[in-house]
Structures are given as C-alpha cells and as structure tokens.
Design a protein around this nucleic acid. Structure first.
Lengths: 190, 190
DNA sequence: GTCTATAATTCGATAGAC
DNA sequence: GTCTATCGAATTATAGAC
C-alpha cells in the first residue's frame, strides 16, 4: 500500500483534532479527547506531533484559496468574494481551518498571530490586486473585519437571524459592503 | 462608612476579574491569578462568588447603553452608532464587558448565549427603532456582524492596519455600512 | 472576615514493556 | 508501532484554624 500505517494514524489524529478544535477551541480540547475520538492511545498523539501546540498548528493550517477575480465583472467583485467564502466555510462543515482558528484566536496569542499571517499573506495581496495604492492595507482590514464578523455571528455565536439568512441574501447585502471596501467605490446596482 | 469592607473586597475582585478575563479569556484566567491581582486569598473568590463561572457571569455583565438616535440626522445614524461604540470600547480600556465576552464567547457556550441575549434585547430593538418592518432582525444581524467584526480585528486579533486606523476614518467608512444595514438605504453623501 | 492547608481532579507529557 | 503506567504540575473548590 502507498500510505504506511503510521501515516494513516497521523491523518486520523489530525482529522479528530480538527473536529474537536473547531467545536470547542484549543483550551477546552484535551489530548485525551482527541485520542479517544481517533480511537488510539493518548501517548501516540504526543509521539507523532510532539505537543498539543504543534498538533494545533497543523490542524489549523489552511489556505484561503482566493478565487480568481480577474475574470469577473468589476462591479461584482464583492459578491464574488462573499460567495466564495460562504461556500468554503459552509462546505468544510466545521473541519475547516477558519472556524478552528476563529474559535481559538480570541484567547491564544499564537492562534491570533496565525490569523494575522493569513491576513498579511493572503487577504492583503488579494485586495491589493483588485485595487492597489496607499490605502490598500486599510481597505483590506475593512474587508477582513466584515467577513470575519459574518463568520463569527453565523458559525460561532449563531445569532438566529444570521444563521437563518439565505446565502444569496448575504451575498448581495454583504457583497455590496465588500465591494465598497475593496474597490473604494460604491456598488451602484446596474 | 457606607460600604462594608466585604463589599469593597467584592468590587476589587470583580475589577481584577474584568481585567484578566478581558485580556486572556475565561479558560486561561485562573482564580489564583484573579486573587493575586486583587491582593487577596484565592479561597475568598470562591467564598464570595460561589464559582469561577458565576464570577465570570457578573464580570461580563454589561449594558450596551445605546445612544439616543432620535435627535441625530437620519442620514448620519450610521456614523453616530459607530462613533458611540468606538468611544465606549476604547474608553473602557479592556475592562468593558464586550471584550470580555468576545474573548470567551468563541469557546464558551454560556458566554455565546450571553452575547445572543445582548443582541436580542439591545441591538435588535435599537435597529427596529430606526426602521421597523419584517426585515429588522436581518438588518440587526448585519449591523452586529460588522460592528463585532471591527471589534474583533481591532481589539482582539490586532490586525495592524485596523489598529492604526484613526477613529474618524472608521466612523466614516464603517458608518456608511452601518447606515445602509440599519436603514436599508444607501448613505449618499450630502 | 481572612487565611493555611489540602482535597480531588485533570491535564500534558514521559518512560519503558511488548 | 502501540500500549500500560505514571510522573509532575496545575486547576477548582473545600474544611477548618485564627
């Protein structure tokens, strides 16, 4: 077989860790729970990953995989971005990197640092590609604030109206905000 | 004297708890630390408040104290709201209720429930007062998502451009977003 | 009212048998 | 490569002296 047994065990551990870190955050997730969920011995978790922190770093690692916005209507870039993120977040069903990081970044400085990295390396360049200039970093920060705010209210805090809101409505409403932040201009419906 | 010694001790404990919960979240703050900061014995914390959870519930309690928007220009309601929140958040210097809740609500279900309560009892009625109708709860959720997103990026995650952004710029930029969400119409500069 | 001492758990991590 | 057994430290919470 192509993957060794130990490699399969590693993946099982990371999978269980993703699920639990994403549900309860770093602090409330124990190595013992992860091991139990993966149906292996707790000692193996440490043996494979060195420490709980290093396991978290691997479990929380993810790429934003920004959509290619060079081919979409310039007046619909905002909608395209929101559409993309919602699809990613809702597709990953709690196992994705963002919920994991978001749940832990409010109390873990290393997780917060990981989020700043993502902002700097992935969000900022994307916004800069849409429209460069001196205000790009500020516009990127505004974009991030709105997108993370939606993720927070919809997936973590679960505000009922935000959970119930259809995806298409979010795409339109939040899309206009993102459009204005990213391009620096208003999205006048056309 | 009007306040008993025990009452002063209680207040000292809550004050220290506010500071620490706001800085590190619920899980990473220990009763021992709180007691040490308050310069009293750890056992007293439990004696006065029963448990760490009950102490947190008291420390995180806060009112949004919404501004009276009945007297401001209808076209500047968004700006007024952002101005108000920024002033409150930045004035409280980490001792306010929102940073405390925000830091803990991502991993504590009871803290998340407390945030939903605040949304339901304070944000929703405020938005409804600006413009009622069937979509009020959705508009309130959008307002909350943007405001919480800003708080998250500026005070918790500390995205550099968001931290560096002058308050007045946030008031204008985010104000237009809030204006649109709250009133359902665009804020055309006049 | 305040403190000392400690109970009772639980945690991450390690050592070593198999 | 996997498990048993356990270490050492830290936690909340309690009991009881002063």
């Amino acid at each position: 077989m192509k993957v060794s047994k130990s490699e399969r065990t590693r993946r099982t551990i990371v999978e269980a860790a993703r699920k639990l870190f994403g549900e309860k955050g770093f602090d409330r997730t124990t190595v013992r729970e992860i091991a139990s969920a993966a149906e292996i011995d707790p000692a193996l978790v440490i043996r494979y990953f060195g420490s709980k922190d290093q396991l978290f770093a691997q479990a929380a690692e993810f790429r934003l995989d920004l959509p290619d916005v060079t081919n979409v209507d310039r007046s619909r870039i905002g909608e395209a971005l929101v559409q993309h993120y919602l699809a990613v977040w809702e597709g990953e069903a709690g196992t994705g990197g963002l919920p994991i990081l978001l749940r832990s970044a409010t109390s873990s400085e290393t997780a917060a640092e990981q989020m700043r990295e993502i902002f700097l390396r992935q969000v900022l360049p994307a916004v800069r590609a849409i429209k460069g200039g001196r205000g790009a970093s500020r516009r990127a920060a505004l974009v991030a604030s709105q997108l993370l705010g939606v993720a927070l209210c919809r997936y973590i805090l679960k505000f009922p109206p935000m959970v119930a809101m259809p995806r298409e409505m979010l795409v339109v409403e939040v899309g206009r905000t993102i459009q204005r932040y990213a391009t620096g201009e208003d999205a006048t419906e056309g």
